[in-house]
Design a protein around this nucleic acid. Structure first.
Lengths: 330, 330
DNA sequence: GGCACACTGGAAATCGCTTTCCCAGGAGGT
DNA sequence: ACCTCCTGGGAAAGCGATTTCCAGTGTGCC
């Protein structure tokens, strides 16, 4: 690999001058030498060693994003939003997937810390396990103590800048909309109870139903993915309206009903949460709560990159979108 | 930030010993000192500076993946497959998205080269533009000359290890299956002509139809995404069977037909390509050509990580999957 | 004409870690 | 008892950049 020294030698200048020409500096370099250096670099195909730059400068141009699962469109959208702003800032992105294993999340943050990345973005739900959360928070604190910046999309549990989607209130608003259509017997495909996002959405829905004086929904726990929705849909009993705590689960539920000959929305109404773009062409089209995922990802990164004065927690509202998968009962 | 020197001082040992204990080495360290060092590192919360390690070792533990668009499930699946094997090897992943801009692709490879990443994975279709391809190939060659490893998923055009999906043959097989069902008048939602993946699939389909002695399909070019499929579906004329060169476009076409009251498959049959998991619950379920995307991503990374002796081009067959979106005409 | 000052260019220290090389001491062979 | 071989420890030389300091050269101004 050709180094800066090679370039300097070939151009007949000092290392310092070559560095100033090629890798940016406050100092000026004369036109003659500048040209010589540039030509040499070009001829040799020089490319700065970023590891060395990072070491010398004491700060790199990489940020880290930690998601649960890239193939889940929710995280893909979040990551995409963040990556766009990152690209705009000239930053490189390291993406880590944890596959919902909190230990992996901690390990990944540790690695990012070792990489001296400029900022870390944690996307994805916290778990109800306080011990794990505390360990993650400790790792993050150590990172921040060294000048690192952190932001998170999800529950405000880590003591860092946070973009907090209105899981609870969005689900509550959805519940009220559905009740207004005449539904009274609800079931919730609630996902795993220890996953905060799932739990918040479920709780928001349940409490809104209760506040309306309606019978408590039938809550069915299970995995947070398509198959979780599919199997939980088998236990919704006599509910006229089923709320799946995310769109992917709702799609699983639709598939289950279709197979069993249960018509949606004639026999049962189904609603999801997130408004995943890839799923908008689903039939029947899915009633859901829209979250501006890309913006949230982008915003979280902005928070992380901002000069750190005070902590910011930004709440993002969800918008209830009524589509064909629910029908009015009256 | 606490450095190795801090740890060594606190433990009362030399830098060398501390390094050997904490960051792995062939050399042994006595139990007493080893314990002292470990305790000191723990107390101080030491975390190795990877930039420095990379510089000193001359090789990092990062790989780069370049995709067009993470929110496209095709690339998400590919990236996920690669990331799983990367995690298994203890490698970190830098993901870059180009949003189909070949200049960005080149720029990103250049940056990865500067990062001295161990390997680069190029996922995503080449463009027909030879000049751009040549520049990318040149950048890759420079990277490889410096010891970098490269693999690519897609067309074998870069002179690097390649996992090549059977775009042409898969589409041809699909055409034969559809013809066997009695279809004779075809249309192809062909995507952009300069995108090799799209072009190959289109060509494979068209040539198979021709070989069967059937009238040439009506080829409609357009964008490679959902909206491209949606609008191209408006021009399929009297075709009884429409092949969209990817599943996402096929879903767009389904939406367009639905809006216009054209029934699928009764009035027109629709087929896609890729067998995207997220789209499997589509109604009607999509006839398509299945590609093992995760495996392909994983395999490509394996190729890249393998000791470089000879170049490997691995062809991956596609499997025709007939589902509800096509019907037999007889 | 002389003096301070801005500007350019280069030598060398530095960033944090790995690794080679050297040294001392104990084990093993004869 | 002597010599060799291995082993664990430390000093110091890199890795490839950045950046501080220093020196030399024109400029502007009195």
């Amino acid at each position: 690999m050709v180094t800066l020294e090679d370039v300097a030698k070939q151009a007949g200048v000092s290392l310092a001058t070559a560095s100033r020409v090629l890798n940016g500096s406050t100092r000026q370099v004369g036109a003659t030498l500048r040209a010589r250096v540039e030509r040499a670099a070009d001829e040799l195909g020089y490319r700065a060693n970023i590891a060395a730059q990072t070491l010398a400068r004491g700060a790199g141009n990489v940020i880290g994003i930690v998601v649960h699962d890239l193939t889940d469109p929710y995280f893909a959208a979040l990551a995409d939003g963040a990556m766009r702003t990152a690209a705009g800032e000239g930053l490189l992105v390291m993406v880590g997937t944890t596959h919902r294993d909190p230990e992996q999340e901690i390990a990944y943050v540790a690695t990012l810390r070792a990489q001296r990345v400029r900022a870390v973005l944690l996307a994805g739900s916290r778990l109800a396990d306080e011990r794990v959360t505390a360990r993650l928070a400790a790792e993050l604190a150590a990172y921040q103590a060294g000048g690192g910046r952190v932001a998170c999309v999800g529950q405000d549990l880590l003591g860092v800048d946070t973009v907090a989607p209105a899981n609870h209130d969005g689900a509550a608003a959805l519940a009220r909309s559905l009740a207004e259509l005449g539904h009274t017997r609800f079931a919730v495909l609630a996902g795993p109870p220890h996953l905060m996002t799932a739990a918040d959405r479920c709780a928001g829905f349940v409490s809104a139903v209760r506040d309306l004086g309606l019978p408590a929904p039938h809550v069915i726990n299970g995995p947070f993915d398509r198959d979780g929705g599919y199997s939980a849909a088998g236990e919704t009993g006599d509910a006229t309206c089923v709320f799946a705590v995310n769109d992917v689960m709702a799609v699983g539920a639709l598939a289950a009903y279709r197979e069993r000959g249960v018509r949606v929305p004639d026999d049962v109404s189904v609603a999801g949460f997130d408004d995943i773009v890839t799923l908008r062409d689903q039939v029947p089209s899915l009633t859901t709560v829209r979250l501006p995922l890309k913006d949230m990802g982008a915003r979280a990164l902005e928070l992380a990159l901002r000069a750190a004065d005070t902590r910011v927690v930004e709440h993002v509202a969800g918008e209830v979108v009524l589509r064909e998968s629910v029908r009015a009962l009256r």
